[in-house]
Each structure stands twice: as structure tokens, then as C-alpha cells.
């Protein structure tokens, strides 16, 4: 327990930087709000414009992911205070996370390749992709259409 209180004193949060710290919190809150609004605007645009799957749509999705990472940086760096911790400590948390670079690339590429192989060699898989599904009208009054949910859920093609 002695260690605990000693560390606390070293961190030394004097009263002069208390108001400054509060200002920083509101600044980061503003940034997070703006970034979220931009993300939503892009998402809404993708919906309204009815974009086809392709390069442009993928680019917008990539942009959303970049904004997501930016938000994550603000939350971890400022709200969770990691930016103000000792660099050595921050590195012990951040460096293992670089595993995600491999993790994401390898698995998404694998999924993509699997889909490509199945589309090429598995006729059943391709046919399934062109089957139309009975479009259910989504109404606000729920309950009455409850049973339609089980009709065309893809069970018969499993």
C-alpha cells in the first residue's frame, strides 16, 4: 500500500492544471462529436446515393474506418490518459496490438479467397447468391408478421 500512495504523489496533479485538464476534456468531446457526425454523414450519403459496390463505396468505407481509428486514438490517448503515461508503459500496451495488422489482413484475405474459390468451383454457392428472398415489409406494428421470419431464413439451403 505504501507504493500506491507514493505513486499517487509523483503523478502530482496540481491545482493549476486542473482547469486546463477540464478544458482538454471538452475539447476532446467536441472532436469526438464532430468525427461521429462526419461518420454518420458519410454513412447516410452511402445510403441515400444508393451506391453500387465498387471502388468508390469501398473508399468511403475505408474513410469511415480511418475516422474510427482517429476516434479510438482520442479515447485511448486522452480519456484513458495513455498519452500522459510514461512512454515505456504505453508501449507495453500498444505494441502487442500491432498483432492486429496481421490478424485483420490475413483473415479478411482468407475470407475473400474462400468466397472466390467457392464462386469459381461451387455452382451451388453461386446459385444461392442469385436466389431472391421474399421481401418482408417492415412495418412498425410488430407481432402480426412474426411467423414470416422463419419462412425464408436460408435454413433450406444450409
Amino acid at each position: 500500500m505504501e507504493h500506491t500512495s507514493e505513486v499517487l504523489h509523483h503523478e502530482g496533479h496540481g491545482h493549476h492544471d486542473a482547469t486546463e485538464g477540464k478544458k482538454e476534456v471538452w475539447r476532446i468531446t467536441l472532436y469526438l462529436t464532430i468525427l461521429t457526425l462526419v461518420e454518420l454523414a458519410i454513412g447516410y450519403y452511402m445510403y441515400k446515393a444508393g451506391l453500387e459496390n465498387g471502388f468508390f463505396k469501398n473508399m468511403l468505407k475505408g474513410l469511415i474506418v480511418a475516422l474510427m481509428m482517429w476516434k479510438a486514438f482520442y479515447i485511448v490517448g486522452y480519456f484513458m490518459h495513455l498519452k500522459h503515461e510514461l512512454r515505456n508503459f504505453a508501449l507495453t500496451v500498444v505494441v502487442p496490438l500491432f498483432l492486429f495488422i496481421w490478424f485483420i489482413i490475413a483473415f479478411l484475405a482468407d475470407g475473400n479467397s474462400y468466397n472466390h474459390l467457392r464462386n469459381t468451383y461451387d455452382k451451388n454457392h453461386q446459385e444461392r447468391a442469385s436466389l431472391k428472398m421474399e421481401k418482408k415489409e417492415v412495418e412498425h406494428g410488430h407481432g402480426k408478421e412474426h411467423h414470416t421470419g422463419e419462412g425464408h431464413t436460408g435454413e433450406e439451403l444450409k
Partner: peptide
């Protein structure tokens, strides 16, 4: 159980 069709109306 998934009642929602794919983006292009195909079976999900």
C-alpha cells in the same frame, strides 16, 4: 433466424 434480405434482395 434472419428475416432481412441481402442488399440486392437475394437470399441472406
Amino acid at each position: 433466424s434472419n428475416p432481412f434480405p441481402n442488399h440486392d434482395g437475394t437470399l441472406s
